[in-house]
Design a protein around this nucleic acid. Sequence first.
DNA 1: ACGAGCGCCTGTCGGC
DNA 2: TGCCGACAGGCGCTCG
Length: 275
Amino acid sequence: MPELPEVETIADGLRLGGQGFPSLLGLTILQAYLLWERTLAAPSPAEFLERIKGQEIEGIGRRGKFLLFQLSQDSLLVHLRMSGDMRLEPSAAPIQPHDRLLLDLEGSLRLAFNDTRKFGRVWLTSSPQDVTGDLGPEPLDPAFTAQMLHERLSSRHRTIKPLLLDQSFLAGLGNIYTDEALFLSKLHPNTPSDNLTLLQAENLLANIRQVLQEGIHHHGASIDWVYRGGDFQNYFRVYGRKGLPCPVCGMPIERILVGQRGTHFCPNCQKGAKL
DNA sequence: ACGAGCGCCTGTCGGC
DNA sequence: TGCCGACAGGCGCTCG
């Protein structure tokens, strides 16, 4: 799925406007069209369509990989999962293949949720914490310190990569940014989490923040058939680069499976915990 | 507590 | 060319 930087980029775009489109802030949702029922996690389709009508968009943000729309009465939460995307367009524009939810807005605008693989989910709720309550800390939150990360890593006995992907441990990292952060940290993806020293945890947190900030700076990555305008895919150091030279030592990047996920790393720079 | 396996979906790519 | 398996930015579930 889009990870933290991609979701942040989408939220920023909708909040700030641009590309000839206004900010969505202050606009009222006139009508919703649900084109694929399972996209809606809650409430029922009938209640959703009725309840969202007439609500104004008062805020747009992100928590972990969730897009958050603060409406006048409820919160609208969107999780893009693997292939979800949001489009803003004139309301007369043609509906696209794989459009799952359309929101007609004031000003002849339409916000469309498009999701090829149908894994994405949408919630309309008055208590968003019921949806996001299990999420771990935000990695970019200055209040989250390396000491806290080290404590959390040490209190578990987990393989580092799947733990970083666990959204209840840390919110927002996905497969790309995890591989990139572990590479910069010179940590093998199979390293046990409680093996890290405080110094290594400090380094890891700094590198997690570095790759996330780079991703945000490049407006996210556009890969496979989902193009959102970002170009961070051109700056990957290891992700998707199997067989290509490590940018640090030149050794070919390897791809292995860790926790069922394709994992890219440099066997020379990221030693330690072999398996 | 942890990890493996699988389901949910559609599409692309590489090998034969 | 066509088919077929592997794989894809995620996550929830069951099971051992």
